[in-house]
């Protein structure tokens, strides 16, 4: 009891000193800044080797599947190779900064190190093919990429988000529900 009183007294003494409040305040600010920047970095698009403008390309009538053909028939949609970009761009005056980065990669014969934006954890085995086969469009999951320059990630694309859609699709069909909510469908 005596010990506890002593401890309380020491705490009160500490609270009277301004250094205590300065340290506490600084710590709180640092914590808030850390949390804030963490959340921000999760939702911000990752830095890309060049600022690819989706809006312009979709506006020119290029289909998503032209540059991401894997979505049609395999698990990964794929990111375009330098050769695919260069197929059109070698016939153009590449004046914009992003285009000049492309020219540099094409002249060096190197592949563009694109950074995937829509990534899933390692234990998720996502497959594009059945989703396209089920009649989904790209923008159902990826949002309005056609209005974006650099592709933006969609926050909280998690298992609940997947299952919401899967359950809705399988409504009333026991067999389909079993298939679409089976663990092994996405986790192996």
């Amino acid at each position: 009891m005596l010990q506890r009183l002593k401890l309380l007294e020491r705490l009160q003494n500490l609270a009277r000193r301004p250094i205590f409040w300065i340290v506490t305040g600084l710590f709180t600010i640092l914590l808030a800044a850390g949390v804030g920047s963490g959340i921000r970095s999760m939702q911000a698009p990752p830095p890309q080797p060049l600022d690819f403008n989706h809006q312009v390309h979709v506006g020119l009538g290029i289909q998503c599947l032209y540059c991401h053909p894997g979505a049609w028939r395999q698990a990964a949609a794929g990111l375009p190779t330098t050769a695919k970009c260069w197929g059109c761009h070698q016939q153009m005056a590449n004046t914009k900064p992003a285009q000049q980065v492309l020219v540099a990669y094409a002249m060096a014969g190197e592949s563009i190190p694109w950074v995937p934006v829509f990534i899933q954890p390692d234990f998720v085995y996502f497959n594009h093919r059945p989703h396209i086969a089920a009649g989904l469009n790209c923008e159902n999951c990826h949002g309005e990429i056609s209005r974006q320059t650099v592709a933006q990630p969609i926050p909280r694309q998690n298992m609940g988000w997947c299952l919401d859609c899967h359950r809705g699709r399988a409504a009333g069909d026991e067999q389909m529900l079993a298939r679409l909510t089976d663990c092994a469908t996405c986790h192996r």
Binding site: F123, A178, R179, D182, C183, A184, T185, H187
Partner: peptide, 15 residues
């Protein structure tokens, strides 16, 4: 450790 209704096997969900 769950039973897969789809494959009729037992699966281990690692995560």
């Amino acid at each position: 450790s769950v039973h897969s209704e789809n494959q009729q096997i037992n699966i281990q969900v690692y995560n």
